[in-house]
């Protein structure tokens, strides 16, 4: 049964991967900005960063996906005076990207604050600009320190991509429910869907963890 529909289902799994990659890019960049705001010396920036983190870390993924898909276009449309609509894929990426940016912001912040102040002062005393210090001194160390934690969050993000089927992004779960509506056989299909996700997540996450440990040990020990 599962084998019969393998092409459709594989295409669905590819969609999971697209949503994941796009949302991960959004989450990483927004998360870094939020983390930098949060440790800024000026309090208005710090408050914005903290608000961002608290809102998105406490928001359920599903309500955010639905909110971005149904409410945000109306608000933006009212602002620019034109009717707009988001493609489900765009809504999914925005919503998941922003929700996970809250988690990534905390990971980045913990990483940045664990860098000894002396490294930053050393950079300053050599006459490096703040941006250059961030890029050359702080971030390379932060990335290595936060990798294990970040991988866990990437795994959660990938798992969260299954709910985009609810706003009709044609991912694996969506295709599976479509096939079930035709065939009326939930047992083999849902079971194999669960096993597929399990295999993909378990194997890929394990592999990535192994590689990242090797890389960390080589450069960072």
């Amino acid at each position: 049964m599962f084998w019969e529909y393998r092409l459709v289902l594989l295409r669905g799994l590819a969609f999971n991967a697209y949503v994941f990659l796009a949302a991960a890019a959004v989450a990483l960049s927004v998360g870094l900005i939020a983390a930098l705001l949060r440790i800024n010396r000026a309090w208005p920036f710090r408050w914005i960063g903290t608000l961002h983190v608290e809102v998105f870390r406490n928001a359920p993924d599903y309500i955010m996906v639905v909110w971005v898909h149904f409410v945000l276009p109306l608000l933006l449309g009212a602002a620019i005076g034109r009717r707009i609509e988001f493609h489900p894929f765009v809504s999914a990426v925005i919503a998941l990207g922003f929700v996970y940016s809250g988690y990534f912001a905390e990971t980045f912040r913990a990483g940045i604050q664990s860098i000894p102040l002396g490294h930053i002062e050393a950079g300053r005393s050599c006459g490096m600009s703040e941006f250059l210090i961030l890029r050359r001194v702080v971030l390379p160390q932060v990335v290595r320190r936060m990798l294990p934690e970040a991988i866990n969050q990437f795994v959660s993000l990938f798992k969260a991509t299954t709910i985009v089927s609810l706003i009709a992004v044609p991912d694996l779960m969506y295709q599976v429910s479509m096939v079930i509506q035709q065939e009326m056989k939930p047992l083999p299909l849902y079971t194999s869907a669960a096993l597929t996700y399990f295999a993909v997540i378990y194997v890929v996450a394990g592999l990535v963890r192994l590689l990242s440990e090797r890389w960390r040990n080589r450069i960072y020990a």
Partner: peptide
């Protein structure tokens, strides 16, 4: 433990809801 941890909640929910009653 690994199965519960590595499958998305939405998939598990559907699985428990529609497959368990059959089994």
């Amino acid at each position: 433990t690994e199965f519960f941890r590595a499958t998305p909640i939405f998939v598990q929910l559907m699985w428990v809801t529609y497959v368990w009653p059959e089994i």
